[in-house]
């Protein structure tokens, strides 16, 4: 193709035609479909890398303060409901499974199945958020929200389930740090869930319109990666916040 023809074509269509093997979703600056797909996946992984470091700062803070204020962290985690945490972990893991199946449905170009799996994921995600909202409400009622209505009162005299949780006043005050981190971590996680649910709704509408079952699966795949990442964050939040201090 000499440069004159090229210029003429460029002026008319805005991009160079690639001929018959050019599916409509292939963007003009990629040579071929595999290159575009790999670029998309790799880009998504790099984004998840930034997410690791984003949550990394919180996990690092948790580690430090847990070592500093061990009794406060133990008492703080005693106030959470293990059943709620376990239920939420289960919901998220099942939703990860349904999302993985959704990606499979997109890869095998089954539109109905894809929609089904996406709806299932959506319901499970919303279920998670509901349980989380219930827990937050509980903490609000018990005056455990730092800055807004925090009171160390509940940690001074022991509780029904944990009569030994009698902290001296200065250590009871430090449960604020536990709850600060608890709310920062679960809040950031829930924010990611809300973003995920919103994106998934958009994807669902697009799939309904017939997209992503024609071989162009990168958006579904990348959303899957995001969703699994959010799941992984929770997989660590669950033991750190709920489980590891049950017996101390």
């Amino acid at each position: 193709m000499d440069s004159h023809t090229l210029a003429a074509q460029t002026a008319e269509t805005g991009h160079i035609e690639h001929g018959a093997d050019h599916p409509p979703f292939l963007r003009h600056h990629f040579e071929n479909v595999p290159q575009q797909r790999e670029a998309a996946t790799f880009g998504m992984w790099l984004f998840l890398l930034t997410e690791i470091m984003f949550f990394g700062g919180l996990f690092c803070s948790y580690l430090i303060f847990r070592n500093w204020y061990y009794p406060a962290f133990v008492a703080g985690s005693h106030t959470l409901h293990i059943w709620a945490g376990t239920l939420n972990t289960t919901l998220l893991i099942v939703s990860s499974f349904t999302m993985a199946m959704g990606v499979h449905a997109a890869e095998t170009r089954m539109r109905k199945a894809l929609m089904g799996w996406i709806i299932a994921t959506l319901i499970l995600g919303c279920g998670f958020l509901c349980v989380k909202a219930y827990e937050w409400h509980d903490e609000w009622v018990e005056h455990h929200v730092p800055g807004l209505n925090f009171s160390p009162e509940g940690f001074l005299h022991g509780t029904k389930d944990y009569p030994d949780d009698k902290l001296p006043l200065d250590m009871a005050e430090k449960t604020q740090v536990y709850f600060s981190l608890y709310f920062a971590m679960t809040g950031m996680h829930a924010l990611h869930m809300v973003i995920g649910v919103s994106l998934l709704t958009i994807l669902l509408i697009q799939v309904y319109g017939g997209k992503y079952v024609n071989g162009h699966v990168a958006p579904i795949e990348n959303f899957g990666l995001y969703w699994h990442f959010v799941d992984i964050v929770w997989i660590f939040l669950f033991p750190l916040l709920y489980l590891i201090s049950r017996h101390q």
């Binding site: 945490g85 376990t86 990860s96 033991p239 590891i244």
Partner: peptide, 12 residues
Amino acid sequence: LLILTGTTAAVS
């Protein structure tokens, strides 16, 4: 994964 979740909750 579900079995492991159950295990970790039980072990706690």
